[in-house]
Computed example of a mutant assay.
Amino acid sequence: MDPEASAAFFDALPLRERFDDLARPGAYSPMPDDWLVGAADIEGSTALIRSGAYKTVNTIGAAVISAQINAHAGLAFPYVFGGDGAVFAVPPREAETARAALGATRRWALAEFGVTLRAAAATVAEIRAEGREVAVARYRASRGADYAMFSGGGVSWLEAEMKAGRFEAPIAPEGARPDLTGLSCRWTPMEARFGKILSLVVLPSPDADPSEVAATLGELIAIEEELERTGNPIPQTGPSYRWPPEGLELEAKASRGDKPLWKRKAQLWFETLLALFFFRTGMKAGEFDPGHYCRVTAANVDFRKFDDGLKMTIDCDPETRKRIGALLDRAAERGLLRYGLFEQDAAIMTCIVPSITEDDHVHFVDGAAGGYTAAATMIKAGGA
């Protein structure tokens, strides 16, 4: 593929309107060989979650994406939030910028939280040389937001290699900070309204027939789509907001730059108190309409995704939970897939909001007591 066509690859992908289409391998397009794939995750995230630091884990995971968005200003590129980390891909001309942003995010996580963030980067050609594929699709979640989906096993392979210490994206020198403009976590946790919040991770077995896996995932999505709002844990009117927000200090650590932490926290106390006034009264401020913003937030969330497997965080009633579990058990017994399912009482959301007056803000949903990380740990433990 010539350089110009390679650079325009992601922009040219069709926006898929139906989520169940993404269960089919044919919905994905192989990425150009020269694109760079990046991955990052928190070392020891399970222990952090057990200690109650789940919002910290999610904030650092979302920071990986926020740093890349700001580093490649205006560029559309694929990324997926994974709870305790993220994956993304960029065209070759952005490779060094991507590596630098990864390194700076690693340094920030260590400096602000004492957390080790692993990171790796490899070209698609390097991944294919190991017999794995990297293919991508775009799903239109709403009129304002679309999300990338990965398939082919290449991203999962890179994540495993990262944990083994290969393809490392080096940590930046002391004092380096990523640009995390727009990263916030102000919303109140969303309590389950119908039963439990289920965080589900489903991975195809290596030797399984792709058509059978796709059919099974299609059945699972059909069950999930019977839920109110297809299981979206965010009410249609938007999430709730209280003051001071639980994530205020996390946002201060993301956005303080060279300011002392106390000074940035003081600024955010004022900003979030002002935001509370507008959300409670519904009063507009110039082009900002709080009611519209909340409704768009509810529509723009990434509560379901494909990332070399299916991940969902859904508000689910007990009967539907039984149906999902029975379907997955049967598929696991047939050797089609492996899965982990973790139940909790609420969902949380971490956000990237470039502008409060535009509709392109994105919102990453996870379970409030372990979510995707806990579900993935159940797979490693060999049970669900």
Rank of each mutant, 00 (worst) to 15 (best):
P235Q: 03
A214Y: 08
A12Q: 14
G325S: 14
E271A: 15
A71P: 05
T350P: 04
P245Y: 05
I65R: 08
T105V: 08
D307H: 08
E246K: 14
V201C: 10
T272Y: 15
P178G: 00
V37I: 13
S211K: 15
G165S: 05
V353E: 07
A7F: 06
E17A: 15
E94K: 11
S51Q: 13
A100H: 13
L310I: 09
E271I: 15
L327T: 06
F303I: 06
G286Y: 11
F278Y: 14
A299E: 12
A8P: 01
D329V: 15
A326Y: 14
P173F: 10
G286R: 11
T97A: 15
G85N: 06
A375G: 00
A160M: 12
G175E: 03
A376M: 05
T181Q: 10
A298E: 09
G218L: 00
D329Q: 14
T46L: 03
D289G: 01
R229H: 15
A332I: 04
A12T: 10
A384G: 07
Y293F: 15
F303C: 08
G231K: 05
I379L: 10
E191D: 12
T188Q: 10
A346C: 05
P210L: 02
L273V: 00
F19I: 01
G367K: 07
D11L: 07
Y147A: 01
D2P: 07
V64S: 09
A298S: 15
A137N: 07
E228N: 08
Y139T: 01
G82L: 06
R264H: 15
A192E: 06
L227G: 02
I352H: 12
P178H: 05
E249L: 13
K163R: 13
M190R: 11
D84Q: 07
A125T: 09
G382F: 04
H363N: 06
T123K: 01
E130F: 06
T313E: 10
V57K: 07
L337M: 11
V213I: 07
D307E: 13
A169M: 00
F342M: 01
K55M: 13
F288W: 14
P233C: 01
A111M: 03
F77G: 01
R138W: 09
A23Y: 06
V134F: 09
E246I: 08
P210I: 02
D20M: 02
A23F: 09
D20Q: 11
A254E: 02
R18L: 12
F167T: 00
D34F: 05
E94L: 13
I127K: 02
C316D: 07
G238M: 01
A125K: 11
A40N: 05
M162K: 13
V115Q: 05
A222V: 08
I221W: 05
L261R: 04
V90T: 11
E271K: 14
F10M: 02
F167H: 12
S240Y: 10
A160F: 07
E226H: 12
Y139K: 00
V115A: 09
L183Q: 05
I234L: 12
L274V: 14
F81C: 02
A172W: 04
G152F: 05
E219H: 10
L158E: 09
G325M: 11
T357Y: 10
R166A: 15
G154I: 00
D179W: 13
V90D: 03
A369H: 13
A266G: 09
E358M: 12
W108N: 02
A266I: 09
H361V: 01
G218H: 06
T373S: 10
H72R: 06
L328D: 04
I352S: 03
A129G: 11
